[in-house]
Amino acid sequence: MEYVYTFLIGGAICVIGQILMDVTKLTAPRVLVLLVVSGAVLQGLQLYDPLVQLAQSGAKVPLPGFGYTLAKGAMEGAKQGLLEAITGGIKAAAGGITAAIAWGYVVALVFNPKSIR
């Protein structure tokens, strides 16, 4: 049943993003920012954690999961002080950020991207 919840919740998040791009005049980057911010806000309100407990990767991998990770790290860091509140989000998401940069570099080397004009 865990796989079903992961698929349904992760798919629903992606469908919401696609609907926002199709129905509104929001561009893809704006929808991406909206999803990240919504994950952070929902975590700040303690509403995203139950979704993560239910769907696991289905809620952590899409973009709201990145916002959730940043907010959760900042909230954990805030317990230790102001500086940790500022750096806590980046520390919590460092692995994902590093993987994204490294794989982006490898893909750029392999596929020789061209700039779009």
Results as ranks from 00 to 15, higher is better:
G67S: 02
L8G: 08
Q80W: 06
Q18Y: 15
V52I: 11
V52T: 02
T6K: 12
K91A: 14
K114V: 05
G73K: 04
N112G: 10
W103H: 11
A94P: 03
A78Q: 09
G81L: 14
F7W: 12
I13T: 11
V37R: 01
M1L: 11
G58P: 00
Q46P: 02
E84M: 15
P29L: 04
R117W: 11
Y68K: 10
S38A: 08
A78S: 13
P50C: 01
K91W: 10
L8S: 09
F111C: 08
G95M: 04
I86C: 02
G95K: 03
T24Q: 10
V23Q: 09
L42M: 08
G65H: 03
S57K: 08
V36N: 00
L20H: 07
Q53W: 09
T98E: 15
L8D: 10
L51H: 02
T24M: 07
L20I: 07
V33P: 03
R30F: 09
I116T: 12
A59S: 04
S57N: 06
F7E: 12
V4G: 12
K72M: 02
V106H: 15
C14K: 06
S38H: 05
Y5N: 12
S38D: 00
C14G: 06
P113C: 04
M75R: 11
V52P: 00
T27V: 09
L32G: 11
A100Q: 13
G44D: 00
Y48A: 03
V4R: 10
S38L: 02
L83C: 10
P64L: 03
L34T: 08
G88D: 02
M21H: 08
A99I: 15
V41P: 08
L45T: 00
K91T: 13
S57R: 04
A93P: 03
E76W: 03
T6A: 11
G77N: 02
I97K: 01
I9M: 05
G39L: 00
T87V: 13
L34S: 06
I13V: 13
A92S: 08
S115W: 15
I19V: 15
T6H: 09
V33Q: 07
D49T: 08
T87C: 07
L51E: 05
Q43A: 04
V106Q: 15
Q53K: 13
K72P: 01
K114T: 13
G95I: 08
M75I: 14
V23R: 07
T27W: 05
L47R: 04
V31C: 05
V52Q: 00
Q46N: 07
V23P: 05
I97T: 03
Y3Q: 14
Q56C: 10
A102H: 14
A71N: 05
G67M: 01
V15W: 14
G89W: 04
A108G: 12
A74K: 00
G73L: 02
A71F: 06
R117G: 09
L32Q: 11
S115M: 14
L70K: 08
G65T: 05
V31P: 02
A28F: 07
G17H: 13
L45Y: 06
L83S: 11
V61G: 06
T87H: 08
F7G: 12
L83I: 12
V52D: 01
E84D: 14
E84S: 15
G39Q: 00
G81H: 12
K91S: 11
